[in-house]
Design a protein around this nucleic acid. Structure first.
Lengths: 342, 342
DNA sequence: TTGAAAGCGCTAACAT
DNA sequence: ATGTTAGCGCTTTCAA
């Protein structure tokens, strides 16, 4: 393996100094057009490839932003990531991805690793386990942009991009009520993540304004997964009074609920089911799943825009913007018209 | 913002030299246990965080491997990535992700960017557009590990991990034949990607050994998507003779095919349908979709293992291993028993 | 417009 | 076991 070409090789080749080469290559203005061309030609001829590491070490800017998500396997996060990348690429920023797999420990390790890699900023969506968020403080202390999205925390004074989850919970509930459902159950998680609580609060509020009572037996707190959905539905079916509709914490859980309901011949919309996130499969299962769209692409774009604003300012936390996206109900078969059976 | 602590600060604090600090921190053996402890304590006290950039610049190792995939939004790739990360993390390697979005141009840019970031190696799955693969040569030239997975090319002498796609095509076809289907159509892509051709060849071979003829009208070459599936199915339905089964290039295409068939009341398994990839939704649509499992997790693990082997050797290309995974038929409703109608 | 030179934070001979 | 020192490849001030 022959040594890689550096700017020194180019300089030697052309009998000029490295500073000139550096300037020519980085688009420095005060340089003659001929010199610039010569350098660029030589660079190409010598198959020069810049070492961004060295440049980053010197300049203090890596043009890499770290993104921490629970998992790329959720279509929602995959979409957000996609749009973040899209929104950042024209400015030369790249993404380095870190998956927490819903574990705080991994999340802490992620922050540490990304910081050590000298990223220019971090965007994160909290793991389900995350309660204490002090591990994010170090980013702020280093005066680097930190943006929280979707699964945010109010304990950090940083910009955020999130859905109006209270409204999401409210709208989902109201949608069911509008369809004639009354005895509404909620299968969700116990984790202390803001968005899940907000959705739950929205649910309670919708029930209240519609003068419907909430049966504590119809509140199932567990995890969020197909399995948890099956389990939750099973528990509800064995209860004293059967719900006529079920709100699930996310689409995977809703899928589990539907599978269970089909097994016992209460196929939706006989019992209504609605989820959150509009996952890739939600439109294609039978019955197709009504859900709440969380606009992942808008979210990714907003994260990128927020980040670019922050790096422009001397102090990224000069003005802290909290972007709220409005949820949209996606109506499908699982909440079809419900015959009101007195 | 106060300056970040470096090993110099620790050295000054303890009246020792940076080399001692460096050694203490990096687990160098010939160092007294007391010194090591003092240094570690001071590091903690001063809130020291190593600058991996500097270390990488000096040592020539970043412990980062670049992964290029068409898109993380396909569940298959998300799973592969997940397992690559999993398989690498114990060795201290991190992943930096690059999405080609099925464009060669992006792919070329990806290789360039990752190389400039001084990654220690690259794993890639080709975009649908990719025909010429010379942009990958630079990686090999730098003597850095390059591993191709799933969408591989035979024009590069590098280790690969891929499915036996010929067999995948063969098994899918044989499965349909075993179920009693005879007039089998194929809806796939025209792109010059090896795996798609292999599947098609497998299909042809299976037809041949079963003495079934292939009607050229039943070969639809287009793209791979829900839309392409609908389109392909529509075209087949309008043909002179109707197929009694359809093989789709992937699960998304199969989904489109099924939707179309349901609309015209030929719901599978009346007409059999099978796809490739076992996407997240495939088990949950109605009828549930038979498909070929491509073992993404195994693929990711193998990529990681291969990479770790390569970095161990002086010359990563000393011995080139090409791992082939065996496809597995996942039988579901869409290829249920077919009544043989003479 | 170009050159000289210092230094980003770390590692690793080589010396003691 | 610890210290000295020379870079890794680049940017950037200061000087010419």
């Amino acid at each position: 393996m022959k040594k890689k070409t550096t700017i020194y090789d180019i300089a030697k080749e052309l009998n000029i100094t490295v500073s000139t080469v550096s300037r020519a290559l980085s688009g420095f203005p005060a340089i003659s057009e001929t010199t610039r061309q010569t350098v660029i030609d030589a660079a190409k001829r010598l198959n020069y490839s810049p070492n961004k590491l060295a440049s980053a070490l010197k300049s203090g800017k890596t043009f890499i932003v770290g993104v921490i998500v629970p998992s790329v396997q959720a279509h929602f996060f995959a979409s957000v990531i996609h749009s973040i990348e899209e929104g950042l690429k024209d400015s030369g920023y790249r993404i380095i991805l870190y998956q927490s797999n819903e574990s705080v420990e991994n999340e802490i390790k992620g922050v540490k690793t990304l910081l050590e890699a000298q990223v220019d900023g971090i965007m994160a969506s909290l793991s389900l386990e995350t309660d204490d968020v002090t591990h994010f403080q170090e980013i702020i202390k280093q005066n680097k942009p930190l943006i929280l999205f979707d699964r945010i925390s109010t304990n950090l004074k940083v910009p955020t991009v999130a859905l109006n989850d209270f409204k999401a919970g409210f709208l989902a509930t109201q949608h069911l009520i509008d369809k004639g459902y009354k005895k509404i159950a909620f299968v969700t998680t116990i984790h202390q993540i803001k968005i899940f609580n907000d959705r739950f609060e929205g649910f309670k509020e919708a029930m209240r304004v519609n003068n419907l009572s909430i049966d504590p037996e119809m509140l199932i707190f567990g995890g969020l997964s197909i399995k948890d959905g099956r389990f939750g539905a099973g528990k509800l079916l064995r209860g004293k009074t059967m719900p006529d509709a079920i709100i699930a914490g996310d689409d995977f859980t809703a899928l589990g609920v539907i599978k269970k309901l089909k097994e016992v011949a209460h196929t939706p919309p006989e019992i209504g089911v609605i989820g959150f996130a509009n996952e890739a499969f939600s439109a294609y299962i039978t019955p197709s799943l009504s859900t709440v769209d969380q606009h992942p692409n808008q979210m990714g774009r907003d994260c990128a825009a927020l980040f670019l604003e922050m790096v422009k300012q001397r102090n990224p936390y000069e003005e802290i913007r909290n972007v709220t996206l409005e949820p949209t109900i996606v109506e499908r078969q699982s909440t079809g018209f419900h015959f009101i059976s007195v």
